[in-house]
Amino acid sequence: MTEPVKSKRITVTVDGTEYTRTVEARTLLVRFIREELDHTGTHFGCDTGHCGSCSVLVDGKVVKSCMMLAIQADQAQITTVQGLAFQDGSLDPIQQAFSDHHAVQCGFCTPGMLMATEYLLSQNPHPTEEEIRRGIKGNLCRCTGYVNIVRAIQALGAQEEVIS
């Protein structure tokens, strides 16, 4: 039996790069990503798990990184907004659709919104409007009234092949 610890050395892979760091047990994953790894693309906008701007994929599932401890992510594969674009720097289809449909205004909720979309389409490549809205319900946006975000995802859903 391993004894309880106040901090621990963990290894996580974030956007394809493996990191080994010592983290305090109390550190939230979002703070680990932003403050320890300096991956500031992942944002946070609340302290109760409502806004979704800290959303990342942990082992392929979208989660709010303010709603889990960094120490729980030991050995996990994490994808953040900074890992979405293609190697050559060009936008992935979801990012491109958000730009094409003016689904980005201030860009602050965008990282989380993209991760929720990525997950939604991985589960359901052709969602209905209702399914889209349920898919991004955990992501608050104050700029767009969600209209163009839903449109961007609808356009992606209308395509044959979405996730490359």
Binding site: T42, V81, A85, L91, L114
Partner: peptide, 10 residues
């Protein structure tokens, strides 16, 4: 503005 914001580079 879009590219940097979409890539988390804002």
């Amino acid at each position: 503005e879009d590219e940097r914001l979409l890539k988390g580079q804002g």
